[in-house]
């Protein structure tokens, strides 16, 4: 273990780590609301909403993320749209991630008994209110574990941004390896830093599940408990 090399390259590795954290945060913050509305659109009675959302989700789930990233960074300039490396990586990862997250959220929504929606409609409760007060308190605890799992996959997927000139954690580790020829040290450090981010996400999942269980109690136990 060459600790002197680690010390020499630590500032650039740390900078790459911060870029990875920022990229992950931005991608999740932008993807989540898009995915939420895509999930609602997928469940809509209106074909004009359901069909485009279905096509979006199925197309971008089927495409390799790297192809989307390459298109965003290297091909868009041919159409007069030149994004910076960070913008292109964010756009590409948001497009792909929102498609996956939409399905995770839709699964949570679909687990709620549809009879409750019909009952809410029959009682004259507006759609957005029934969504906020009836659906989401039941759907969120169900969707949370797959959502966090997906978020961890997305954080790991930000490593692809290094291939479109973003100097993220993976890129800085690769650069240090190219100069020093010491893969072991820098790959180990990069792996540990990715573990730190994803361990925090896993801890967030546990905390949020406990919080929801305490706050909503019976509801968080699932639709079956509500029905009793």
């Amino acid at each position: 273990m060459r600790t002197d090399l680690l010390a020499e390259y630590w500032p650039t590795i740390w900078n790459g780590f911060l870029i990875t954290v920022l990229l992950s945060f931005v991608v999740l913050a932008v993807s989540t609301p898009i995915a939420f509305f895509l999930a609602l659109a997928r469940q809509s009675q209106l074909a004009v909403l359901r069909w485009p959302a279905g096509i979006y989700v199925n197309v971008f789930r089927a495409l390799p993320v790297l192809i989307i990233l390459y298109f965003a960074f290297y091909a868009l300039p041919q159409f007069g749209m030149s994004l910076t490396a960070f913008q292109a990586a964010t756009a590409g990862l948001v497009i792909a991630s929102s498609a996956y997250l939409a399905e995770d959220i839709r699964a949570g929504l679909a687990a709620v008994d549809p009879g409750q929606r019909h009952a809410a409609t029959a009682l004259g409760i507006p759609y957005w209110r029934s969504l906020r007060r009836i659906y989401l308190p039941q759907a969120i605890p169900i969707a949370l574990p797959p959502y966090i799992t997906r978020a961890i996959i997305i954080v790991k997927g930000t490593a692809l941004a290094s291939l479109v000139a973003v100097n993220d954690l993976t890129a800085e580790a690769v650069r240090a390896i190219s100069i020093t020829y010491r893969p072991y040290e820098f790959l180990a450090v990069a792996a540990i830093l990715y573990l730190v981010i994803n361990a925090l996400l896993a801890a967030l999942q546990s905390f949020t599940e406990r919080h929801i269980a305490l706050r909503y109690g019976r509801v968080a136990a699932g639709p079956a408990a509500v029905a009793q």
């Binding site: 290297y74 300039p77 041919q78 030149s82 490396a85 290094s162 291939l163 000139a165 650069r175």
Partner: peptide
């Protein structure tokens, strides 16, 4: 601007990036 390879560097040059 650090590219992963020479072909990507030349694409960046061609695109004006």
């Amino acid at each position: 601007v650090e590219y992963p390879g020479m072909s990507e560097s030349l694409l960046g040059l061609q695109n004006g990036q």
